[in-house]
Nucleic acid binder design. Structure first.
Lengths: 123, 123
DNA sequence: CAGGATCCACGATGATACTG
DNA sequence: CAGTATCATCGTGGATCCTG
């Protein structure tokens, strides 16, 4: 029987994986993504970890895995309706990160940003 | 030079540690906490990990470590002003977790809750 | 060739004993 | 009580191999 001392632990059980939040962040931008697209957008992730984290998110009913029976194979991932309920949480985390980066840049730290995020920070 | 593809990665750099969010969740309840109190409230954490995560949060200016020069030693942790800026994020994660637990209980899963969280879920 | 699985190495985490 | 040191274990990273 699962035991929680804090309800936030239930949240962490689901999005606490090392890469899950970034994956969700991408899928929340709206478009379904293929495995290879996700891999390209998260250069530091291993294919193994990508697959693993996607499987867990699928098992928890957060994302949907759609397989196209064709050659070469094609698999697309998207948010489930339940997964959508995490949007506010992830959005807020994004916003906080943007403010954090902005602050650090103003303090003189050098940070390299992707083009999209660079625009994000300026606003 | 630090590189971010997504601004949410900056957030994860700071609160992505395995136990940091739970620690912050506790400190956000308002009262300063001693090391031993934190340990008692998070039974599954190792003392080593507790200290380590606290050190990192302190280095990132999220929490404040106050040492009382006395014997037996006494150390208290509290949120910094900057740490307070995470309150909304953590609160939202708590709320989502509470809804998740409620849903799972309604679906028949057996979940053991601490008294405080049990009250939380009912409302 | 895209998606996925397997094997091995290493770093992060866990368990325990110990110090001031 | 707070914190450290040591050693064991597990999760992650990386390369390679498999499948249609």
């Amino acid at each position: 029987m699962k035991k929680y001392n804090f309800s936030i632990e239930a949240t962490l059980d689901i999005i606490g994986g090392k890469w899950k939040i970034v994956i969700l962040c991408i899928l929340m931008m709206g478009q379904r993504k293929r495995t290879s697209e996700l891999k390209r957008m998260i250069p530091n992730i291993t294919q193994k970890m990508l697959i693993q984290q996607l499987r867990e998110l699928e098992k928890d009913n957060i994302i949907l895995r759609k397989v196209y029976n064709q050659s070469p194979p094609k698999v697309e991932y998207s948010l489930t309706e339940y997964g959508e309920s995490l949007t506010h949480v992830i959005d807020l985390m994004c916003d906080w990160g943007a403010v954090n980066i902005k602050k650090r840049i103003e303090e003189g730290e050098e940070i390299q940003l992707s083009l999209e995020e660079h625009d994000r920070i300026r606003n």
